[in-house]
Write a protein that binds this DNA or RNA. Structure first.
Lengths: 217, 217
DNA sequence: ATAGATTTTTTTGTATACAAGAAGGTTGAC
DNA sequence: GTCAACCTTCTTGTATACAAAAAAATCTAT
């Protein structure tokens, strides 16, 4: 990997951390990274700062920056927070979404359904992401929307695994239907509640899967 | 102002932006800032990056970073988001807060009451902040807690002005009482609803005040 | 041989130097 | 006189150089 600009390096580093390329607590060596990307330390340091400020790494002054892979507890906390953000988006969406927005949401869900029908887990993953993003957008609150997008992106690598549960995709789709109905009918409380549970389940499934992997090695 | 370390410069800059020292859209000149703080451009650039990533400034590549004072719309959006975060904290707090935590919350509210009684607006402002922080803490979700703290800090300069409304302090205090009661009784839905409205009112009061100031000059 | 002190080495943080792109001004053509 | 092309200047972004602090290694005394 030989990129040039600082923000590209930051993105590449995020990807590497996401993909579990680095272990928790591992120090990110400025010099080695500079050599790896064939740049000087300056843009590497900028990229590292971005990682730190996004919470993916921790900086200890005069010691370096260390990757911070969230443990099971923090992950559950993040899913829980995501559930609340989405619940908020859903409540606003139910009250504010335009017909146009609801159409987009329905179409996104149709694409989810199509992915399930052709048993395309990867496709479902992508379309599911877009489905949720339509809800963020429907909240008609750019700030909240961006916060939701930020956390969604941060949880990306962990959401992926839970689709491996047998029958999870179909269940997820059914939940989507309920969400769309609630938003369409303008029932904010219901939309909020349904979305919260939908996301919370994701976190719980993830936890189950992790626990299982730990046992079986 | 002549500081030395990068993070101190970032803090100082945040303060300057908060205090309205810089107008919206104004470019933050690296060289001038470096001279001002009597350091080289390097730590200044690090500080500017922090501002950008925290949303207080915008960076245009090869052009510079420009301060981004939130307009009325974005501020309302931020207050709305804050309300939702606090509502979430309140709901969790109602379910999870320990007796110890409830004691701390009550005490914080007592200090608010004391500030109101001695008509100490500045004191109320500080104690009110701590009161809300006890709720974040009571959510027993470190991630959510930190998100709430982050936004609370970002809204700090705007929350201050709304206390200038006549009778607002007393009303705020009354709302606090209802919040404490709801949490104490373990009624998550009520706690969440009450908190949401409490924070939403802050945003609306702020808007009213701003509109008023605009008219009178 | 081991614990502590001292020196060496490594690494972060800051300053300066340099390169490349953008803004602004000047000159020239119509 | 105005518009456009070119050139100058200024600013950002990156590379290198240097300083200071922490980690590692060596040495000494008991």
């Amino acid at each position: 990997m030989e990129t040039k600009r600082a923000d590209q390096i930051a993105e590449a580093l995020e990807q590497l951390v996401f993909q579990g390329e680095y272990e928790d607590g591992q120090r990110l060596d400025e010099i080695k990274l500079a050599e790896h990307f064939q740049v000087s330390r300056t843009p590497v340091r900028e990229a590292l700062q971005r990682l730190v400020l996004s919470g993916m790494a921790e900086q200890i002054p005069r010691r370096g920056v260390f990757v911070r892979q969230p443990g099971p507890v923090e992950l559950l906390e993040m899913f829980e927070t995501m559930a609340e953000l989405e619940a908020a988006c859903g409540r606003f969406a139910a009250a504010r979404m335009t017909d146009d927005g609801i159409d987009r949401l329905s179409e996104a869900n149709e694409r989810c359904k199509a992915a399930v029908n052709r048993e395309d887990a990867s496709g479902y993953y992508d379309e599911n992401e877009r489905f949720h993003q339509e809800i963020y957008r429907g909240a008609t609150n750019t700030f909240l929307q961006n916060e939701a997008l930020r956390l969604q992106n941060r949880l990306k690598p962990y959401r992926r695994v839970q689709l491996r549960f047998r029958g999870r995709m179909a269940q997820s789709l059914a939940e989507h239907e309920a969400i769309v109905d609630a938003i369409r009918s303008g029932n904010g409380e219901l939309a909020s509640k349904t979305l919260r549970e939908h996301v919370t389940v994701q976190g719980e499934k993830f936890q189950q899967l992790m626990a299982g992997l730990k046992k079986t090695g």
